[in-house]
Lab assay of single mutants.
Amino acid sequence: TETREFDNEEEARKEAERLRRKGQDVQIRKKGNRWELRRT
């Protein structure tokens, strides 16, 4: 599992969408005042 953190939700969602188009399974969750993007 690979995780990346983003400062805002929009960036996290854009990156998640990009990875999903490549066929990756991605989850986003709020972590304090940041957003965590998890690739499984």
Rank of each mutant, 00 (worst) to 15 (best):
I28G: 01
K31S: 09
D7I: 06
E11K: 04
E36G: 00
K14F: 08
A12K: 00
L19T: 02
E9M: 07
G32R: 00
K31N: 13
K22M: 15
R13P: 00
I28W: 02
A12E: 00
V26H: 03
R38S: 14
E10R: 07
R39L: 15
R39S: 15
G32S: 01
E9V: 10
E9N: 02
E11T: 06
K30W: 02
K30D: 00
R18M: 08
L37Q: 06
W35D: 08
I28T: 02
E17W: 04
A12S: 01
Q27T: 13
T3V: 13
Q27I: 14
L37G: 07
T3A: 11
N8F: 06
E17F: 03
G32Y: 00
T3H: 09
R13D: 05
A12T: 03
R34S: 06
W35Q: 03
E10W: 12
R21Y: 05
R21T: 11
G23I: 00
N8C: 08
E5A: 07
A12M: 03
L19D: 02
R29P: 02
T40I: 14
L19E: 04
T40W: 08
L19V: 04
W35K: 04
E5L: 14
R13W: 11
R4Y: 14
N33C: 11
E36M: 02
K31H: 09
K30F: 04
E17V: 07
R39D: 15
R13T: 10
V26M: 05
A16S: 04
R21L: 12
E10Y: 10
R34A: 05
D25I: 13
R20I: 08
K31L: 09
D7C: 13
W35M: 02
N8E: 05
Q27M: 10
A12P: 00
R18D: 07
Q24S: 07
N8W: 03
D7A: 08
E11D: 14
E17I: 08
N33Q: 04
R13Y: 13
R34E: 06
R34D: 13
E15S: 03
G23H: 04
E10I: 09
E11V: 05
D25T: 12
R38E: 15
R20Q: 08
G32V: 00
E17P: 01
L37E: 12
I28L: 10
R29I: 14
Q24H: 14
D7Y: 07
R34N: 11
I28C: 05
Q27E: 14
T40E: 09
W35P: 13
G23W: 02
R20F: 06
V26Y: 09
R21M: 12
E36Y: 07
E11N: 07
Q27R: 07
R29M: 12
I28P: 02
R4S: 08
E36R: 00
